[in-house]
Simulated assay, not measured.
Amino acid sequence: MEATDEQIRRELRASARREGLLASQAAVELLIRCEFARPGYPWIIRNEDPDAGPLGYTADFERILDETVPVSGSQRRLLAIVASLAGRAEVNLADGVAGLDRTNIALVLAAIAHANGTHEDRGDGLTTGFPPGLFPWPAEQAGEGPDSHRM
């Protein structure tokens, strides 16, 4: 049975929480919000071997920049920022944010604030709730899920 997008998002977030690093949580959330957390992307891995770690979906951030997935230049830059937050790549921010639209800049700013520990609690299981958010994750539109921020 195929996993739903919601199940994959839930498992990716749980995997990031288990890792315990805010930067990894921010990387996963940015990956989800930019709609790159779906089956078929080579960095979305399903572990079905209990000897290899927790079962479920995880993100293999090293594969983000190694794969030749057809994406636009701005999408490639967002993926590089995701990999950088996860500690798998170095990104020149001047190049990384060039050409991103307001929606995606807001997502990157929220991810950086989250990685720094200055995020707010939105009940998503990723946040601490204290102190108040410096730059919160953008609100989702009514009827939209976390993947609603298209590039």
Rank of each mutant, 00 (worst) to 15 (best):
D66E: 13
G123D: 06
S24W: 11
I44N: 15
R102E: 14
P54T: 04
D101H: 08
M1D: 03
E35P: 00
R77V: 09
A52G: 06
L12K: 01
R9W: 10
D49M: 08
A106L: 08
R10K: 15
D5H: 08
E144P: 02
I32M: 01
V91L: 08
I64S: 04
A115D: 06
H149S: 09
V28D: 03
E120W: 02
G143N: 03
G117M: 01
N47H: 13
N104S: 10
G145F: 01
V82A: 11
A110W: 01
H114N: 07
R63N: 07
R88G: 06
L109H: 12
G99L: 05
E48H: 12
R38M: 13
V97T: 02
I32A: 03
R150E: 09
S84E: 04
L93F: 09
D95C: 03
G96I: 10
P50C: 05
G145Y: 00
R17Y: 00
D49V: 14
L55P: 14
E48F: 08
E29A: 12
T128H: 11
Q25L: 08
L22V: 02
P136W: 01
D124W: 00
C34Q: 11
R18W: 13
A111V: 13
A110S: 08
G133E: 05
S84F: 05
E6Q: 15
F36G: 09
A59V: 07
S148V: 01
R102N: 09
D49T: 12
M151P: 04
A113F: 02
A59E: 02
R10W: 12
T103D: 10
A83C: 11
N92Y: 09
E120P: 08
G129N: 00
A139W: 03
N47D: 07
T103W: 12
A86C: 01
L12Y: 03
L107F: 04
E120G: 13
R77N: 09
R13Q: 14
E144Y: 10
V28W: 09
A89H: 07
V82L: 10
A37I: 09
V71S: 03
V108W: 11
D60N: 15
P50D: 08
M1R: 12
G117A: 02
R76E: 14
P54L: 04
E67Y: 09
L134N: 05
D95V: 04
G129M: 02
F130P: 04
A113Y: 07
E48G: 06
P39M: 09
G117L: 07
H114Q: 08
Y57V: 01
L65S: 15
E140G: 10
A139C: 06
I105C: 03
S72V: 01
E2W: 13
R38G: 05
G73L: 11
R76P: 06
I44T: 12
N47C: 11
R102K: 14
R13C: 06
E11I: 10
A14Q: 15
D101F: 12
L126V: 03
D51F: 15
P132V: 02
A26H: 03
N92K: 04
G145Q: 04
R77L: 05
E11L: 02
L100D: 06
L65D: 15
A115G: 01
D124K: 13
L78C: 15
P39D: 15
F135L: 12
H119W: 15
L78R: 14
